[in-house]
Amino acid sequence: MASIRRSGGATAMFWQGRLPDPRDPQFAKALQKHRFRTIEDAASEETSVGWISAGDPTGGSFDDEDLEAGTATWLRFRLDKKQLPRKWLAIHRDAAAKSRGKKLSARERREIKDDLVGKLLPRVLPTVQMVDALLFIDRHTVLLLHTGKGMIEAFGRLFFQTFALPLERTDPLATGRRTGLDRALADRLERIEPVRWPRRDRGDRALAARASTHAATTDPEAEAVDA
């Protein structure tokens, strides 16, 4: 079994509610229910997403030692995609157009594709991606070791299907709510506006001096220093 990687990107995600304890067999059972299922022999274009473990890339087992990573629970999911190779499709369409001596109609293009799907797809292997995530149950936080939008969404969907809890991904608002602000500051966070810093090229003066001219009648945060 390899180790968790030492470099790369991470997206923090948070949940509210109760997850089964990862040491409880219910947790592995939940993963098992949404385990990865192969599409190696699929005869049509397909995508498969499901849980696997660090020790078993097929999704066949979720042993405790594969899930344990000190204070974290080591989750891994796999996303396979089986697609007709676009270049092969283009080659076949170009050849057909050449032999017929004219541009193909939409119907002819579709027929060529359907024909190729039947002939080629059983021979095509899916692309495989495996992504790790570290779950810290006491912090209600999971660090997905990936920053791609598609992977974040796929992980969020799989997590929700498995545990019936939506994940909220990191951003300045969601993260700010988790920094232990008191009620008054938390309220200000919700409606805060950007500071408009003074611009020397426009001859702006210092921040406070300009802000004070607005402070009596407006929210200084919103109006701070206008350009």
Binding site: S3, G9, E68, A72
Partner: peptide
């Protein structure tokens, strides 16, 4: 989001893959 992160060197006492993973998970956190 965090990208291009490089964690500290693995602790010297980590001998097994499992120890290394626990150490790295702690460093990510």
């Amino acid at each position: 989001q965090l990208s291009g992160a490089k964690l500290p060197e693995d602790a010297e006492e980590t001998e097994s893959d499992q120890d290394r993973s626990a150490d790295r998970a702690a460093n990510w956190l």
